[in-house]
Amino acid sequence: MKDTVEIRWHGRGGQGAKTAALLLADVAFKVGMHVQGFPEYGPERMGAPITAYNRISDSVIRVHSNIYDPDFVAVVDETLLESVDVTQGLSKDGGIIVNTSRPKEEILPHLKGYEGKVYTIDAHKVSMATLGKYFPNSPMLAAVVAVSGVIEKDKFLDEMQASYAHKFEKKPEVIEGNMNALKMAFEEVH
């Protein structure tokens, strides 16, 4: 049953972790896969820790529980490393992607001896360079796609181009910046 890739997102209310999960579901759907994208709701307030999930599979997905043993974890807000056990259940054959400007060595001590691959991306840098504002969504989405390999890079970029063209129909000037954010994120995640 492990033809399904499971991804868990950690963020804070208002940062767009839920949106990133829904975007990933969207783009995976568009390339022909079966998807789930869903948030776990706690108290709804800005800044509270939130979790969102993705299942992506070639076959129909029936399970409707949260994800406990994810293949990949994306941490949108590094301050959560202090308070949330982000590597809980995380497969050591998978990996974790942390949004941070700090070197990886400074992140590792927070990961409770996690044995899988650890990636970092400075979504702030990517976002400021390409969009001029801090929207961690697009860089984190691209980083997750790059690391997990759930969608081929070219297919992903093509679909995102189409998706932004639709979403920003009335603001076409932001499409290029968002696409650049995705492309730069592919280079910047290590």
Binding site: A25, G37, H64
Partner: peptide
């Protein structure tokens, strides 16, 4: 339908 589990989950 089940609150959040299906109402807020995007699926095919």
């Amino acid at each position: 339908q089940d609150g959040f589990i299906t109402s807020h989950a995007v699926e095919n």
